[in-house]
Design a protein around this nucleic acid. Structure first.
Lengths: 336, 336
DNA sequence: TTGAAAGCGCTACCAC
DNA sequence: GTGGTAGCGCTTTCAA
């Protein structure tokens, strides 16, 4: 057991070096207008007293923290299973890092978290925020809006004016559904997930659009989350309703992986008996056998773009609006 | 485009309400010693000027931030693939949340990140830190030590005096290896990973210990990371060296999943031809077919315990030492 | 090139 | 109960 020691301050350094606090501060911030004698004295003093600047105090006077929050609002299971979130996060971190901003990731996982994170955001600990997977009427959104905090959203929660970065979920979903139809499947179902989010709703809309008059609501199973378990369960339901289904569009790769497990357990062969496609092109897609045909989305680019959007607002001081839609492509593998 | 508005301060509220800053402050911090007239005036003023307290400024005077850093120092791929890190993180978040502490997750993913995160930690933005998967001689460790920052480590990097939370990797590895031997396997290999970390080295040591004189270094393939891809590659190497291998101990579930893919591709059946065991009991374990026999470790409990250890040090003001080793168990499923 | 002094937004101590 | 005042640790004019 050691007692915590008091941290040294500029004053300690100034006293030790025999100069003023101002001079120490100037030295710390680039060393301009500091004579070489002063510099040396200060360097020695810093070493001697073990000084590290309190950047939090600096933030107070400069009115900026050089930190950006990355807020993940997902239930447990999805956060753990969706590799896309991780990729987006690393993309954002990398972009922020380049400009010497600190990304601080905040997890919202309970009612209590919502309040605390809101306080944290409004409390001046960050200069901006990136929000992934906000739900409709998310309390955090109103906090950000009220504060006028520079922000960017991944996905597009309705009613948001801040910039958002996304993909054309509807178009991509329609495209891969069509591609699946071209393989000659006659009875195509969908395991739709996360319908309380724009991404989930749009993927279903795209599916419906592609099928046109062939669309049969009976063949759409709705599950709550983009998760493996929901995918497996959804597939069981779909098989009960339509044992002769020969094509399945899953709302995400994790969902598809779960569906695949159910299909194999039921004795069906993929893609021979059933063609299956996913969405995301996450690491799930190549970890299954057969590998998943799916929609590739540039997750890292999304993270980067979101970070840029926030930095831009911080730089200009204007709260920007408008969205950025990045391109997707279809990756055809073995599952369909 | 809207311009950012200046945030209201206590002074604005005080002026508006016709009371002093002190009274406003007292109201904000629990409302003791505030008359009901004052209270009402303040409430109205807060609404009118749109005041949100700057908790960063509060931190400066109180000398505590109510925030704890959660530092993940992993290369890309592992962070994304290791569901254990996510579970540990949620466990820590949950424990911190209960005590109204904000967990801020900081990702170290480059040289540059190391410096920036070090500055962030020493800059007074957090009251303590939880560090997962530090490597030997990690620069962040020395920063924490020099600062006397309350901290806890997940795993046990050598030379660390701060509390650590871990499991008996060596014992657990020996146990599951023995269990695998009992199924009658004669030629057992290991895909060892992350040997630059105590967990990786200890798992290999346990394997060796269990095999005793039967240990054959030729049957140990070393790969850098606890990852699916390294598992797949490691298994290929192992099969080249010993096509007649009939048992495999993988250093983690992700590694085992990769190994499984290689085994199936090579036309072998698991568990008939080869018995395979993993480590972690992460979500990988039940997503493979057959599901993995593995070592269960209480990931969420590890996160919780790490958080408690940090909070305890913050509370007492003493930098504690010593470790906590949590129990593991073997979960036997279909892969061996 | 330097030091003195003001002040970032807040809390806490003090008399009243 | 309340207002005044002194800082938390730092940066940043402004004179010298």
């Amino acid at each position: 057991m050691t007692e915590q020691r008091r941290r040294a301050t500029v004053v300690d350094v100034a006293l030790e070096a025999g100069v003023s606090r101002g001079t120490v501060s100037r030295y710390v911030n680039g060393g301009h207008y500091v004579s070489s004698e002063a510099r040396q004295a200060i360097e020695a003093a810093i070493r001697k007293v073990g000084y590290t600047p309190n950047t939090a105090a600096r933030s107070l006077v400069r009115q900026r923290t050089q930190a950006v929050g990355f807020i993940v609002h997902e239930p447990h299971s999805v956060f753990l299973e969706d590799p896309n979130i991780g990729v987006i996060m690393l993309g954002a971190n990398s972009a922020l890092s380049t400009r010497d901003y600190q990304m601080v990731c905040l997890i919202v996982d309970s009612e209590r978290d919502t309040d605390r994170v809101s306080r944290y955001l409004s409390g001046g600990f960050v200069d901006g925020a990136i929000v992934v997977s906000a739900r409709d009427r998310d309390p955090i959104l109103s906090v950000i809006e009220r504060l006028g905090l520079p922000a960017a959203f991944v996905g597009h929660p309705p009613g948001i004016t801040a910039p958002f970065i996304g993909i054309d979920n509807r178009g991509a979903s329609a495209a891969i559904t069509q591609r699946l139809m071209q393989t000659g499947r006659r009875k195509i179902g969908m395991i739709a997930a996360a319908l309380d989010r724009d991404s989930g709703a749009d993927r279903l809309a795209g599916f419906r659009e592609a099928l046109g008059i062939a669309y049969d609501p009976e063949l759409v199973v709705r599950v709550p989350l983009y998760s493996f378990l929901d995918g497996a369960a959804g597939m069981r339901t779909l098989l009960e309703r339509a044992p002769d289904v020969d094509g399945v569009v899953a709302a995400s790769d994790a969902v598809a992986a779960g569906a695949l497990q159910t299909l194999l357990e039921s004795g069906r062969s993929v893609p021979r008996d059933v063609g299956l496609v996913g969405f995301d092109d996450s690491s799930w897609a190549t970890r299954t056998t057969p590998a998943l045909s799916t929609v590739h989305q540039p997750a890292e680019g999304i993270g980067r773009a979101a970070a840029e959007a926030v930095l831009e607002q911080i730089r200009t001081g204007d709260i920007g609006a408008g969205g950025l839609v990045l391109d997707t492509s279809i990756v055809w593998r073995g599952s369909a």
